[in-house]
Structure formats: structure tokens, C-alpha cells
Write a protein that binds this DNA or RNA. Structure first.
Lengths: 228, 228
DNA sequence: TCTATTTCTGTACGGTGTTCAGTGATGCCA
DNA sequence: TGGCATCACTGAACACCGTACAGAAATAGA
């Protein structure tokens, strides 16, 4: 691990970590489409193609950004065995949701590149341990772990799809208010059930809906663990 | 509804439906990034900016494409009351998954624009009716409906993220084989649980995993419907 | 000291979404 | 019937984008 500074050539003017940091800044300021090689380079103070010294192409850069995002959320609670497994899972799921929703446009990145960086692996490992604690057989634990990731990322992606990525993130309450206006226009004669559920549908993109669905999934796991 | 041909100006040389069709062709041939205004216009045989007569910007165009995709899957089975609600839901979920996975890159579009077109509304309405049949209270039915959409779209998005969008879609078995190679490289000393579950993890992107998670979610709904 | 290697720059290519100012065709109204 | 407002589309341009290629400067090891 100690191979510092042994190659020839001039000193590096910046680092790959710095590139990822700047990419995240741009993501926060202007959404996913504001993350461009040229803009990153300009902010670092370097020619655009200098970036290619560190990443083979833009896709690789975005993969690194995704892994940084995953690593940002605090997953330590997953291993804390003194807390009930259900609470630990809920906490981490909410934590990840919060971390990702704080960066508008992060969902677009998540869905655009495979999630297989080191931080993602560590998260998966922690969840496997937790689900084993919950009483699931190893294979079931793995399947359950992926189902949770699917649910969490799906929820975030759908929430993020509605946010204007070029502006600041509105609060949850603001976003719900806007949706209420949308669903008020649903024609009751064609879609009676939807019209009657307009209020609940407006709240689809809220924390309660998120935990409601998560709890149903966890109920399903529990039934499996108890053998019915 | 009968306002055909009353405005001045020359006849339209093409239709918005045609634009969506061509966009889908390009999506199938070259993935999401092949869908460009200029390419669509070229294929129709028209100047690029002529597209702006029909759509205010590219985002609106993509929204129309998304709704077309949703409408492509056969949701008629949702209303067939003689089949058990669980089977109906499973069938439709699998159908949607199939329809979307047939178009590589469609997931990227789905996650990039809100899903509120007419076809999406119709799908939601059908699911509300079905979940009411299952014995859920109206509010719970709405929440359950969204939870399912979250799960289905999340699963598809994660599967699509791994596919090279510029080539033809590989078969499920091919994709799993590729993942097996990836997870064989997981270091067992750092991630023992993950390494032990490598085979299941390789199969995350398969039909069985998809239905496994869906069944857990449906189990959770059932528990709610039975009042425990 | 020489040489191989590495980092970064300048330049360029082919693409993108979108805007703006025309140009001609059309239906409506006086 | 003539005029006119309205519409569909074109040509040209702008400001970007990712990235390939060639070269210059700097450094480490021989």
C-alpha cells in the first residue's frame, strides 16, 4: 500500500478524489446535467482533457461519484447488535434516502451506472449480517438485501424524477403541495379511485409513504424468518 | 373532441405520435443517448427545430416516450376478477418488467421524467381497484400501489444500469454469467458474507429474484388485509 | 547525462439542445 | 375577393459537450 511517488514525470496537479468532490459540487448546484468534464476541469483550473489522466471516460468518473455518495451515508448502525434488526434497517434506509435526496440528480447517476464500488460492497456486507441476525437463511438474506436496495433506490429515483434539477431542492412539504395541485386535476369520471385517493397520492413522495412500503417489505421478511 | 383542422397555416408534415415512434426506434437501436432531437428530425426528414412545433423541449418529448412505454404493457389482466389478485399483480409486474427491459435505456428515461401521463394514470387506477379487491382499505391500497411501482421500477432500473446501452440486450443468462465473474473477485477476507453469497448475488438481476422480492411485498400487503 | 515515462496543454472534430429571424402556406373575416 | 393573422417549417447560429491526437515540460531511474 506504500507506493507513493515512484513514477517519473511531473507532480500531479490534482487528485482523483478532488475530481469527485468537484463533480459533487456541480451536482448539487445544477443537477446531473451540470456535471461535465469541461466544467470540472475549469473549476480545478486545468485543461478539460487533463481529467483523462485519472479516469478513462466520463462513465468511470460517474461511477466513482456514485460510490462516494453511497459512502456518505452512515451505515455503522447496521452492525449495532443491541438494537432490534428492524429498527436498524429502517434507520439506515432513511439515512440513505436522506443522503441521496440531499443531492438532486444523484438518482440519475445511481441509475445510470452499476453500483459495485467498495463502499457499495461494504453496505451489502453489513446488510447481510443484519438479515442473518433477523433469522433469515443465507440465501434469503442475500435476496432480502437486494430487495431492500431495489425499494430504496426506486423510491429515491421516483422522488428525484419530479424535482427540477437545476434549482435548489424544495422541501418535502413544498413538493407535496405541488403534487396535490397535479392530482386535483384528475378527472373523477374516468379515474374515480385515483381521484378519491388524490391526497394519499400527493404524499407518495414523503417520508411516511417511504417507511410504509419499507415496513410491508420487512413484514414479508419476518414472515419468512418465522416460517410463517 | 372534434377539432380537426381549424387553424391557419400549412398542413403539418408529421405528428407527435410519429416523433415518439421514431424516438423509440432510436432508443432500441442505440440506447438512451442515441435519442437526440437532431437524429429524430433527420429520420423524419425535417429540420431539427421543426420538432419544437410539437414539444416545448426535449424533456417533454421524453415524457411522451415514457408514457408510450407504460402503455405498451398489457394491463388488461389487472381487471380480470376471476383470477386471484396475487396472480394478477404478479402477471402485470412481470409484464411491465418485460416490456421495459426489451428497450435498453428505457429505465434511464423512466427515472428522468415524472410518470404522470394518461397511460400511467390508467395503470394506477387499475391497481387501486385490484388492491381493493384484495381487501385493503382505500388509503392502504393507494400506498400499496405506489410501493409496487417503486419496487418494479427500481428493479428494472438497477438491471438496466448494468447493460451496455449501445449494443443489443444480452439474454438474462448471459448477464448473470457476467455478474458471476464480477462477484468471484470479491475478497473473502474483507467481505465473507458477500463472498459466500456470490452465486445468489449474480442472480440478483434475474426473474426469480424479481418475483421473490415482489412476493415478500405482497405478503406484507396480505398481512395488512387480514388484519394480522 | 541520457532516456523512458508521465502529466498536462492546444487544438480540433463531430456531436448536442435550443434560439431567432425569416418564408411560405393556409383558414378566417371583412 | 382581398387582406391578414396564424401557423409549420427552414437556415443559420450559439454555446456547449465528450474525447482523440500531437506535443511540451518535468521527473525518476539507468
Amino acid at each position: 500500500m506504500g507506493d507513493e511517488k515512484r513514477r517519473p514525470g511531473p507532480e500531479r496537479a490534482f487528485t482523483d478524489a478532488q475530481v469527485v468532490t468537484v463533480a459533487l459540487e456541480l451536482l448539487d448546484e445544477g443537477g446531473a446535467e451540470a456535471v461535465s468534464i469541461r466544467r470540472i476541469a475549469a473549476r480545478i483550473g486545468v485543461a478539460p482533457n487533463a481529467i483523462y489522466t485519472y479516469f478513462p471516460d466520463k462513465a468511470a468518473l460517474l461511477r466513482a461519484v456514485v460510490d462516494r455518495l453511497i459512502g456518505e451515508s452512515d451505515t455503522a448502525v447496521l452492525g449495532r447488535a443491541e438494537t432490534a434488526w428492524r429498527d436498524r434497517l429502517r434507520t439506515v434506509a432513511l439515512d440513505i434516502r436522506g443522503a441521496l435526496l440531499a443531492h438532486p440528480g444523484s438518482a440519475a447517476l445511481l441509475m445510470g451506472s452499476p453500483i459495485d464500488g467498495p463502499n457499495s460492497l461494504a453496505l451489502g456486507e453489513a446488510m447481510l449480517g443484519l438479515l442473518a441476525d433477523a433469522g433469515l437463511a443465507p440465501d434469503d438474506a442475500a435476496r432480502a438485501s437486494y430487495a431492500i436496495i431495489v425499494y430504496v433506490l426506486g423510491a429515491i429515483a421516483l422522488e428525484a424524477a419530479e424535482v427540477d434539477q437545476t434549482a435548489a431542492v424544495p422541501s418535502e412539504e413544498e413538493r407535496i403541495t405541488e403534487r396535490r395541485a397535479t392530482f386535483a386535476a384528475v378527472p373523477a369520471e374516468h379515474f374515480p379511485l385515483s381521484a378519491a385517493s388524490a391526497e394519499v397520492m400527493a404524499r407518495y413522495i414523503g417520508t411516511e409513504q417511504f417507511t410504509w412500503g419499507l415496513d410491508r417489505l420487512l413484514d414479508g421478511f419476518e414472515r419468512l424468518a418465522l416460517g410463517r
